[in-house]
């Protein structure tokens, strides 16, 4: 009997998950359908760009700088054994542009901006602001959700690029300024090895995908949250957990697709 109930539990979870993914997809469709209004009134998006993008700037810049510095330090220690310290720039830049930039920036974005989005929309629901808007004949998906979605999609690649740029600078600082790797070979080897289309653009593409997914998850959880205090806090936690897992899994798939073949 224990096996049967365990199986039943797995089955129920699977059905629930598929159900929620379906709902989220439908929600995504609704957002796209109602997006026209937010582009016609672009200041709605600008307002949300402030709370998602500008408010995440500091954490992204500081985190990027430190990740780059650690990469510089660790990379130097490893490369020194093989006498190829001059490849430090390549290592730092490729690591950041391809992987760490998009992934870490997206993780930070999920916990900084994503959770805030969920909590904000959940609270708007709990205090009947969403119903009030509906009663005023204003579609809340068009007015509340869509501008936030586009703000997330726009700011994520920019934040990831900032993260990578700060990281390269951090690596440069530790490697060249502190340790004394040759500056010329640092930059020239980096430029020779990092391809614009293959590496930089794929990184941007990744962060675009992550931004879309994280924002959808955050908005869906907020919009779907039970209108109570526990409901909203649970939804906020779910946003961070689900979107972090989604980022890491998607990163593997995208990496395999982009860089796996060559």
């Amino acid at each position: 009997m224990a096996i049967v109930s365990a199986l039943r539990g797995i089955g129920r979870r699977t059905v629930d998950t598929v159900w929620r993914i379906g709902l989220a997809t439908r929600f995504f469709g609704l957002i796209l359908f109602h997006s026209g209004n937010s582009f016609r009134r672009f200041h709605l998006i600008i307002k949300e760009l402030f709370s998602t993008g500008v408010m995440s700037l500091i954490i992204i810049v500081v985190a990027g700088l430190f990740v780059g510095m650690v990469l510089g330090l660790q990379g130097y220690e490893t490369l020194k054994r093989y006498g190829s310290e001059s490849a430090l720039g390549v290592m730092v830049a490729l690591g950041l542009v391809r992987e760490l930039g998009p992934v870490v920036a997206a993780l930070l974005f999920a916990s900084r901006a994503g959770s805030a989005m969920t909590a904000e929309i959940g609270l708007m629901k709990a205090t009947e602001q969403v119903s009030a808007m509906e009663m005023m004949a204003v579609n809340p998906i068009a007015r509340i959700v869509a501008p936030r979605f586009w703000a997330g999609v726009i700011s994520m690649p920019l934040l990831a690029a900032l993260f990578s740029a700060m990281g390269v600078f951090g690596g440069y600082f530790v490697g060249v300024v502190q340790i004394g790797v040759d500056e010329g070979s640092f930059w020239s080897q980096m430029q020779a090895a990092v391809d614009f289309k293959h590496d930089v653009m794929n990184g941007v593409l990744k962060s675009f995908v992550f931004g879309t997914v994280v924002t959808i998850i955050a908005l869906f959880e907020g919009y779907d949250a039970p209108p109570t205090a526990e409901g909203v806090s649970g939804a906020t936690t779910r946003t961070v957990v689900t979107s972090s897992l989604a980022i890491l899994m998607l990163d593997f798939i995208l990496t395999a697709m982009m860089f796996g073949g060559s």
Partner: peptide, 25 residues
């Protein structure tokens, strides 16, 4: 608000350009 968002967008694009020109080829 507009000013801050403008700064953010310009910084982001500058970072992208820097990645393209200085880091990439």
């Amino acid at each position: 608000l507009d000013l801050w968002v403008g700064i953010f967008v310009v910084a982001g694009i500058a970072a992208l350009v820097m990645l393209a020109m200085k880091v990439g080829n």
